[in-house]
């Protein structure tokens, strides 16, 4: 049995070293032009630097190319893909088949991870994209534990599961915030707002608050709670999920470092002996709650929730 990878999303180059030191074994980075909903912006130099730092420490670097592309973006894909291949990134993360087509043609040796956020919902599709060239499927956040376990059992590709942080609920190409401000005749800086200046939607009926922002890829709305699975990892360990992801969107560096080291501890304890993890998991959860921002309640996402349709 091998330890799952611990994948985190740094916000800038300087965070890479600290997060790897805290126990991350892989990082996902990228730029808004190609990737969606990133914790921070990494231009080509940043990616190269992140790669040097991570590789020196034995960690992997994946680059997000998971945007939905329109025709106008297609001409710039080959050059970016060739650059990523040349510097030796460990994989690129894609959702749009255009990226797959471009990789086949321009850098067939590049590894691909399939991640559409919402549509990786069964083992057949995971394997389908495997046959098309991807080596990993990033599962939809809306799956329950039973589905995840069954997918992993039947998957011929690696399986990545998000275990911590917020997840995306909605993406529109429309500029919904900008439109609302124009409609009101107000002038408000919508895009490129600082990390401490988030916009949120209040939903009084469900007493929930949803982070929302707008960028080159449109309008994004995020989950009202942060999922936290630190004390519920047994089944994921047992079935051998290949990668645990901690999402770093709208989180500061010190929080990310602490969360990373807590999950590191959880993984290491389990692989020392499952009983050690079982004995410690409540404490790990208590530790995590202590550093959790008050406006982001923790829950277990869809792992133990039934959805109907």
């Amino acid at each position: 049995m091998k330890k799952p990878e611990l994948l985190v999303t740094p916000a800038n180059v300087t965070e890479v070293e600290g997060l790897v030191d805290a126990g991350a074994t892989a990082v996902m980075v990228g730029e808004e032009e190609y990737g969606i909903r990133l914790a921070g912006e990494f231009n080509r130099d940043d990616i190269e630097n992140a790669l040097k730092i991570a590789h020196q420490k034995g960690a992997k670097v994946y680059v997000a190319m998971n945007a939905l592309f329109h025709n106008e973006s297609l001409p710039k894909l080959p050059d970016y893909i060739q650059f990523l291949s040349k510097i030796g990134v460990d994989a690129i993360v894609f959702g749009d088949p255009a990226v797959l087509m471009s990789v086949r043609e321009h850098a067939p040796e590049l590894k691909l991870h399939w991640n559409t956020e919402t549509t990786a919902t069964n083992w057949y599709s995971a394997n389908y994209w495997g046959r098309k060239g991807s080596t990993r499927a990033v599962l939809a956040r809306e799956l329950n534990m039973d589905s995840i376990v069954e997918i992993k059992e039947k998957a011929e590709v690696d399986i990545e599961v998000q275990v911590h942080g917020m997840s995306c609920m909605f993406q529109s190409k429309r500029l919904l915030l900008g439109n609302y401000m124009t409609f009101q005749g107000k002038d408000l800086q919508i895009s490129g707002r600082g990390k401490n200046q988030n916009l949120i939607l209040h939903d009084p009926e469900r007493k929930a608050k949803y982070p929302i922002w707008e960028d080159k890829n449109g309008t994004h709305i995020m989950s009202p709670k942060d999922m936290c699975m630190i004390d519920e990892l047994e089944e994921l360990f047992e079935v051998g999920v290949d990668s645990f992801k901690i999402e770093g969107i709208q989180k500061d560096y010190s929080y990310m470092r602490q969360v990373t080291s807590l999950y590191r501890e959880a993984i290491d304890l389990y692989f020392l002996h499952p009983d050690k993890y079982n004995g410690q998991k409540e404490n790990l959860f208590t530790e995590l709650k202590r550093i959790q921002p008050s406006n982001r309640v923790l829950d277990t996402g869809f792992f133990f929730k039934e959805t109907v349709y």
Binding site: L68, T116, E117, T118, T119, R141, E142, C168, M169, F170, Q171, S172, K173, D203, R206, A208, G218, I221, S223, P224, F302, K305, E306, T307, V308, Y309
Partner: peptide, 15 residues
């Protein structure tokens, strides 16, 4: 973008 919205899952547990 159709297929990329799970508001309903989060707000009402309907897929």
């Amino acid at each position: 973008y159709s297929g990329r919205c799970v508001l309903s899952n989060h707000m009402t547990a309907r897929d």
